[in-house]
Amino acid sequence: MVTLEAQCITLHIPVQVIMDVRLMPVFHSSSEPWTGRSDPEDGPLAKRVFEFVSKSGSRAVIGFASEAGVARNKGRTGAKEGPAALRKSLGGLAAPHGFASFVDLGDVVVDGDDLEAGQKQLGEHIDRALETYDRVMVFGGGHDTAYGSYLGLSTHFPDKKIGIINLDAHLDLRNIGAAGPSSGTPFNQIRQSAPEAFDYLCIGVARESNTQALLARAKEWGVEIVFDDALLRDADGGREPIISMAQRCDIIYLTIDIDLMPHFQAPGVSAPAARGVPFATVEHLVDTVQQACTENDCALPLVDLVELSPIHDINGMTAKTAAVLALSLMT
């Protein structure tokens, strides 16, 4: 009797490193090659995502390996390992019909507490990457990733109206304290950098996770909020504000904090949610954003997936959840 056993292969694709000598101290290529299961007995359609990592493509991923912002924000550390865990889970997923090759641009690495330098360099890399790719996906790291991401996006598109959609249990509008910027301050930083251009929609907000000071600041700054309990009553509760933003903006910047979901679906995060928004609803929100952009000729060139903390994960559950969202945004 002849048996066919699954093979596990490693794909050694040189990472395209978008750096120059000024950036070398904090930026390096991915240390781990993309790997996954191979099923040659099932023919050429039996491919998984890791087999599509290439030197060329219209889309790219870049990691922000940092937990400095989470530590400053008094959260559970471990987010620095998030990009690697997300790549590993994403690489093993079955590639859907029409899936295209993509490029891995490596990681911006923040060792220690030098968050500000890391955010600046992330912005520089994103700015340059957008010259080549029609969508760049940032794997975090804490949500301090968002400030670096916005820097790169707004630098590259200085004359475009940018709308921010944040799927998150937290508003992340805290004032900067004595420790400096953190994973709780990025949208406050963005607003300070461009107050007149600030257009921010936060979907999935948990009242018990945001102080009255933050809610008052959001109201003062015109932030639109969809609370988590509203989405539990109606999974389509975010559709109207999403469409409205796509209609008035040239570009949408979508940033997804994995801690949006319930603790039993996403235990491996910096701040687990007691209630949370179910995974199926989050998938629906992501689909709604993409559909609204397509129908209103609004670009979606930049997406973040942040706050994955593998050290707190259970059986890789959170990493796989994040990977499924990433796959839908790469397809």
Rank of each mutant, 00 (worst) to 15 (best):
R72D: 02
I165V: 15
L151T: 03
A68M: 08
A146E: 08
D172R: 03
K47L: 04
T77C: 13
G63R: 10
G78E: 09
E81A: 15
S183G: 04
L130W: 06
A85W: 05
A85E: 11
A85P: 00
H97N: 12
S54W: 03
L115I: 11
A94Q: 06
K74D: 13
F139W: 14
G69Y: 08
A179T: 05
R135T: 06
L93V: 04
H170A: 11
A94R: 06
R128V: 06
G57Y: 08
G184T: 10
F102P: 00
S54Q: 03
G180Y: 13
G180K: 08
A85K: 09
V53L: 00
R59W: 01
I176R: 02
G148M: 06
P158V: 12
N166W: 12
K47C: 02
I164C: 02
R128H: 09
T185P: 01
E124T: 14
F157I: 01
A100M: 12
L93E: 04
F139N: 09
D159C: 04
P186R: 04
Y133R: 00
S182K: 03
V110F: 04
S66Y: 03
I62M: 13
L86K: 04
A179P: 00
R72K: 04
E67F: 12
A179R: 11
E81P: 01
L93Q: 07
K161G: 09
Y150W: 14
G91K: 06
G180L: 10
S149R: 08
G82D: 10
L86M: 13
H170V: 11
K161L: 13
S182N: 08
D113R: 05
T145A: 11
I162S: 12
D107S: 15
S183L: 01
G148D: 05
I164V: 05
G98Y: 09
A84H: 05
D172L: 06
S101R: 01
V53W: 00
A95N: 00
T155P: 04
R87H: 02
L153F: 06
Q119H: 15
T145S: 14
A94D: 11
I126G: 07
M137D: 07
S66N: 14
S183F: 01
K88G: 11
G118W: 15
E51L: 14
P83N: 09
S101T: 02
N175W: 06
L115N: 11
M137W: 05
P83L: 12
D127Q: 09
G152K: 09
G92M: 06
A179K: 07
R59S: 05
K88R: 15
T155L: 07
E67Y: 11
L151K: 07
